[in-house]
Amino acid sequence: MASDRIFGLVVVIGALAFFAGALQIQTSFLSDPLGPRVFPILISGASLLCGLSILARPDPEPHWPARAAWVAMGAALVVLVAYAYAVVPLGFLIPTALASAAIGYLIDPKPVQSVIMGAALSAVLYVIFKFGLGLGLAALPRALMG
């Protein structure tokens, strides 16, 4: 109930913001009869109706995870974002081993098993991608590769 009320409210606000954004789109005098604004405005109208309807008839409360699971999922998010930033400057092998180990640990918290799996997975995937599929991946940090 409460989740869907919040969700419906977010949809309504989002639809209004989208509408406001659509009005800001520049049009050119060389445009077709409809122009670039009308389709986004139609979408915002439809979303507004959906949001109001979710508010009016909310579903039963979904089963949200416990606090520990939120922490674990937050940690996974941090790992993924860090991986996206790290994989280009640091090469494939090290970030992949660390990120795989971290995600494996978050699913099944056994440290040794996760570290071994991370290292093995990183090496196996590198061989498959580099030599099997011929993708251009740098193995190690740029500084070390010269």
Binding site: Y83, T96, A99, L121
Partner: peptide, 20 residues
């Protein structure tokens, strides 16, 4: 194959695919 191997694998294949 247990999920603690499967999911890291799926993640990394997704990342490499999008990156490439």
């Amino acid at each position: 194959v247990p999920p603690w191997i499967l999911m890291p694998m799926v993640t990394m294949v997704s990342f490499v695919g999008i990156f490439s």
